[in-house]
Design a protein around this nucleic acid. Structure first.
Lengths: 238, 238
DNA sequence: TAGTGGTCTAGACCACTAG
DNA sequence: TAGTGGTCTAGACCACTAG
């Protein structure tokens, strides 16, 4: 397996950065210098540099050159799947009920709707070894003729449920994570006392125009569940 | 501002996907078809497609063609800065103390060290409008001659503190987020009772060989702080 | 065998930068 | 004015796919 030349070029620059030879703000070799050094054409050099630009190792300033980026960042990648968070696979998801109701205030606010608009509520919870760990509530603005498929509701994640109604591209998802003492309802489902804290994750799904199309709240028993995040990105993280 | 041709090509494909004309698994026009359609050369077409590959809209199968990706994912981007989480800027960070101690068990475990190895502890907290919101503790394995700069300890984030010791590239960072009842120490600093839950964020910094080089715990008063994440990526999220 | 994407060449013209 | 990166062309050869 011979490495393509453009990969060799990007690794050459990357090594200069990792080894410390090049530091933040430094100018790297110009494209023409790299062409000469590797005996190749500019298109090949540029292909190698594009990789580094995408990985945020370098940035380019037209007319001046390519420069090393500041790499320290506060950015992490987090995976959140409200049903499958307990990765072991021993868990069991139960559907508590599906109803059409008048929206509570919190839901009106988060979905940007008035109290006249009915919403569908889906309540589910997950157990593992007979311990209730997750309680999940979803709210979706109701409109007549909405196809609600039992199997989906039972096993699908929120984006999956909503994807049926729209192109599944360009969905915006937001999470708000907090800790709180459980309400009576949550205490009952998770079988905990008021003093045992839960992690609350609010999930908002927005369409292309930033209009909310779904709002969910997931409560986790803090004793049995922790969220994890890291700065290593992987594509298709399911 | 005339748009570059390769951008027009990538937007053309993107629109086909967003509008639903192309769905998951569908084959998009071949590169040669796109060349003809846009009256351009293959390199330009490929440049347009590369953008879509990087954004995970399409993937290519050599010998067959380019295909639309599955876009639903559970991946979110989270920004975490233990000192600057209270974005408003009204907050004030105070240094409680720096000490060299024998590591507690939790720290030994997370740093992968024995009890013989001393660690540096840095304790800081942040207030906003006279309310303590964040209590932050950092542990770093001690070695002689370690340059500890007062100003850095006071104001720098964990990766920044550690970056001095190594190339700041290729740092791996992991977060574990949970909810819990505060210990006596945390109660005192955050001025809360045992019943008021805190959000606990453990931060582990690893070097290239996955060896821990720093461990931190940040406690947030849940009443005043929530973590946010979304699926929109932005580079340089500071 | 015809078509596909992957790599690469050797040029070109452009706007911009900085002395 | 010389050098830089941004865009684009019109080719080439390759390995792979699938009928």
């Amino acid at each position: 397996m011979k490495k393509p030349l453009h990969i060799e070029i990007s690794e050459y620059i990357k090594n200069q950065i990792i080894s410390g030879k090049l530091k933040y703000g430094d100018k790297i070799n110009s494209e023409n210098e790299l062409c000469e050094k590797f005996g190749t054409s500019r298109m090949t050099v540029r292909k190698g540099l594009t990789v580094l630009v995408n990985e945020n190792f370098i940035y380019s300033v037209p007319g001046k050159g390519n420069f090393v980026s500041e790499k320290i960042s506060n950015q992490y990648t987090l995976y959140f799947n409200e049903l499958n968070s307990l990765k072991s696979g021993n868990e069991e998801t139960k559907l508590l009920g599906v109803n059409i109701i008048n929206p509570p205030i919190e839901v009106m606010f988060n979905l940007g709707i008035t109290k006249k608009r009915k919403v569908i509520v889906i309540k589910r919870y997950s157990m593992k070894h007979d311990i209730s760990i997750v309680y999940d509530i979803k709210y979706i603005p109701y409109h007549v003729g909405m196809p609600i498929v039992e199997k989906e509701i039972h096993y699908a994640t929120f984006p999956e449920i909503l994807a049926k109604e729209m192109s599944h591209f360009e969905i915006k998802k937001e999470l708000i994570i907090s800790g709180e003492n459980p309400s009576k309802e949550v205490q009952k489902i998770l079988k905990i006392t008021k003093e045992e804290p839960v992690m609350k994750i609010e999930q908002k799904i927005l369409d292309d125009d930033n209009k909310p199309i779904g709002f969910g709240i997931t409560y986790f028993n803090s004793k049995y569940f922790k969220l994890e995040a890291s700065n290593l990105k992987s594509y298709e993280g399911d």
